[in-house]
Each structure stands twice: as structure tokens, then as C-alpha cells.
């Protein structure tokens, strides 16, 4: 393998984009397939499926076996709202392997005492997003109940093609949210991607049980949904 290919692969990893190395096992020829090249690649279908599963492996081709080294970014969970549910959701998601960030501009909620082990940002989501925008491998859980805080990151996550967008609130609250997002120019198709009320219906009552239902829904979206794009 040439150093240039390794450098290009590492650049994709750093930018949180999926990429694959296709190595011809007979002869050892290597090529890099970026996420943006997948559609045009002869092994595109196979690579797209493996971007979803994250599994490297051998594929048989008419020209002999090819090993696909699959590189997908670690999934990120951004929680808007340093609330009670978040105190349970953040550590659970971290254990499940997510890189967790909590954002809440209300400094009374976003205190290190309440979130001792989490990445906590006491700032407005729109300001945080400028520095670290959402991407396809981000899950967003908006749980403040406050449209002033929740709406902008929800729209940003839909635009970025984030693999999961969930929002807390009753059906009535969500109906109002749909009206606001529609007025803001968000398409009906995008709005339909929002999981609301948030979480799988497992009958959870306590904040911790709700956190389980949210995390399960996020994992389902990651493992069964269309993450790569």
C-alpha cells in the first residue's frame, strides 16, 4: 500500500467520514473508496451495506477475493437539555460506546455536579454547532421541552442527515413543533424522520426507564437504519 492511500484514509477518518480500503488479495493492489465514491464503485453495493454494519471482510469478485477494510466514525450522541433523563441517558450511552455531548444554555441545569463524567457545554446549541456541526454519524436527542433551545438543533440534524433525531414531548407538543418547523421551511419528509414522542414504547415511567427507551431507539437507528450517505 502506498503511504498516500493511508494518508487519504486517515484524513477521511479525521473528518468523520466513512471510507473503505479495497485490497486485492492476489497481488495486493489497494484502492481507497470514499463515502462520496461509493455509488460509482463496482463494489459500491457491498461497501454501502458494510458502512451500515461497520464490518470489514472478504468479498468474492470475478477478479479474485478482495478484502474490504471498513472505517466508519464512532457514533456520537448529542443531547440537548441537561435534564433528569439526560443524567441517566448520558452514562448509559457512554457505556454503549457513544461519544456523548450534552448541550444546555441554562447554567442552572448544565452543572458539572449533575454530570460529573460527561462532556457538557453550557451554551446555545446554535453556537456549539458552528464549532462542531452534526454529521451522518450523529444522533440528536432534544429533551428540553423548550422550542427556543430544541428547534434549531433539530433542524440542523435533519439537514445534516443525522442518523437519529428524537424530540421529547407529547403528541400535542409535537404537532405544534411540526407547525413551527414547516413554517421554517423544513420538508414534510424530513419532519417525518423525527422520533416523537421520543423513545421506543416500552412503557417506561422513570427518567432512567425513558433513557433506556431512547438509547434502544438510537441503537436501532444506527444498526438497522440508513446511516451511510
Amino acid at each position: 500500500m502506498r503511504l498516500a492511500i493511508l494518508e487519504a484514509l486517515n484524513a477521511e477518518r479525521l473528518a468523520r467520514r466513512a471510507a473503505a480500503l479495497a485490497t486485492q488479495l492476489k497481488g495486493g493492489e489497494v484502492r481507497l473508496v470514499k463515502a462520496s465514491d461509493v455509488a460509482a464503485d463496482p463494489l459500491g453495493e457491498e461497501i454501502a451495506a458494510r458502512f451500515r454494519s461497520g464490518q470489514s471482510g472478504i468479498v468474492e469478485t470475478p477478479a479474485g477475493d478482495v478484502f474490504l477494510t471498513i472505517s466508519v466514525p464512532p457514533p456520537r450522541l448529542v443531547v440537548i437539555g441537561a435534564v433528569h433523563i439526560t443524567q441517566a441517558l448520558a452514562p448509559m450511552a457512554a457505556i454503549a460506546g457513544f461519544d456523548v455531548t450534552i448541550i444546555d444554555p441554562r447554567t442552572a441545569f448544565a452543572t458539572p455536579e449533575r454530570f460529573p463524567d460527561a462532556t457538557l457545554v453550557a451554551d446555545w446549541p446554535e453556537d456549539v454547532l458552528k464549532k462542531r456541526p452534526f454529521d451522518a454519524y450523529t444522533a440528536l436527542a432534544a429533551v428540553t421541552h423548550d422550542p427556543k433551545i430544541d428547534d434549531i438543533p433539530i433542524i440542523a440534524a435533519l439537514q445534516a442527515g443525522s442518523f437519529y433525531v428524537g424530540a421529547l414531548g407529547s403528541r400535542k407538543t409535537h404537532a405544534k413543533r411540526v407547525d413551527r418547523l414547516t413554517a421554517a421551511g423544513v420538508s414534510a419528509e424530513d419532519i417525518a424522520r423525527i422520533k416523537a414522542p421520543i423513545g421506543l414504547d416500552i412503557g417506561g415511567r422513570s427518567p432512567a426507564e425513558l433513557a433506556v427507551s431512547v438509547l434502544a431507539q438510537v441503537v436501532a437507528a444506527l444498526r438497522k437504519g440508513e446511516v451511510a450517505r
Binding site: 500500500m1 502506498r2 503511504l3 493511508l6 485490497t23 488479495l25 495486493g28 489497494v30 478484502f67
Partner: peptide, 10 residues
């Protein structure tokens, strides 16, 4: 049992 590909980085 494992199979390992070893390649020099040039």
C-alpha cells in the same frame, strides 16, 4: 484460526 494480510507501506 486466523488469516492475516501483511503489506509494506511504501
Amino acid at each position: 484460526r486466523i488469516r492475516i494480510h501483511v503489506e509494506p507501506v511504501e
